[in-house]
């Protein structure tokens, strides 16, 4: 437990479902992370181009650029390599959130 408390990091999450966004933010916050949430791909990209978090969580289907579009975009900016990890929510993902 003490080890987990030491590991603080920033997580960006983008999902168009407000409840899911809130629930994920609460969960990450309680785990000791700082979570920033975005309602769509465009607002996420506007921030992610400038500031690189430790982890990124993306919904595949969102208004504007999809999770896949964002992945390509971030790859081009080499953010993918610098961010610690990146997880895509899949369509109909289960609650554990399978990663790529």
């Amino acid at each position: 437990m003490s080890e987990r408390q030491r590991v603080k990091g920033e997580i960006f999450l983008a999902d168009d479902d407000p409840a899911l966004r809130d629930a994920l933010s609460v969960t990450f916050m309680l785990e000791g992370f700082h979570a920033r949430s975005f309602a769509d791909g465009a607002s996420f990209l506007a921030v992610a181009r400038e500031s690189i978090p430790d982890a990124i969580l993306l919904d595949v289907k969102m208004p504007g650029p999809s999770g896949i579009d964002i992945l390509h975009e971030l790859h081009a900016h080499r953010v993918v390599r610098r961010a610690c990890f990146l997880i895509l929510n899949r369509y109909g993902m289960d609650c554990r959130g399978d990663g790529i």
Partner: peptide, 12 residues
């Protein structure tokens, strides 16, 4: 969507 959110709240 709501079930996942619900589980995350319960987990928290």
């Amino acid at each position: 969507q709501p079930l996942t959110a619900l589980m995350l709240y319960l987990q928290s």
